[in-house]
Amino acid sequence: MDIKRLIWHGSIPLKITLSKTESRIWDQTTPYYIEIPRISYLPVYLDLLIGFFRTFLLDESTASAGNAWFSTAEDAIPVRWHLPIGLLHDLHRPPPPASSSTTPQPWHLVLHFTNYPDILARRQCDWAMRDAYMNKLKEADFLRCGSAKRVMSLSKHDSDALWQSVVDHDLDTFTRITSTLLPTTPRNLPIRIYLPTPAPAPPSSPTTPTPSNPHPSSKPPTASVGPPLNTVHQPLTPLSQSQTLNDLLSSHFPALFPDPAKSKSTLQRQRERERSNGKVLGRAMIHGVKIPGEMPLVEVVREMAGADGWVDIVVVVVVMT
């Protein structure tokens, strides 16, 4: 199986329960178990879930796709519906850096129909998800070609069929339509990098960053709360065919991804630091898999882009011991 096919068929097992405050029978509602393709989106499955949970609801009139939102069962965090489910999973449940042999448990999400949180974008109509998807696609096209005319000149039939192929998980149709979208030599690459973000400094303190001080005095760096997602686009520089994933990451985040070429000169210093407090390093994960840094970026995008044309890189931090 080629990489594209493997990615397309990757899936996330989910356990979905109804918010107990909205259920007639508190926490006794039967959970719904479903396995969703990584490249798909939660709103696609709402009709199914509404049909299943409707009769459990205290107030059945709230059961509409526009009201529905999800939160993580573990820490009650609203889940952003417009991101692919695989990416959401990797952001909320970062895979362990070392391969562990434990059996993966389904990811537990809670479905709500009331108190829609302000921090989530509203889905004002039925086709909001499709619209969000098409916008992401156009954005990626704009980066690759300098305009979105390839996506915008898709026929009505093809652009409908493209979204439908994501909904129906139909790789053949998807490949047929998207094959016209990819230029042989892209100008830029649609890549997003997601960094876990530790707790922000309190607003009263001066904003000068103190990277040398691992223990900000005012706030203990324990359970880090904060905007976890820092998205960084591939910068608009002339793209060389040989640029690798490591080149990209070490130019953006040299402390997390030291440049192997430079590390020789500072090897001594590095060794000392490693001995003293354990080195913090980043690991790049795409679709939940650790990607070798020497892989050329052009290939990463060609083989590993999601259904929206973007490559989402989730950075996981590890402390070397």
Partner: peptide
């Protein structure tokens, strides 16, 4: 935390 603060 320190390493990440630099970038976030």
């Amino acid at each position: 935390t320190a390493a990440l603060n630099r970038y976030t």
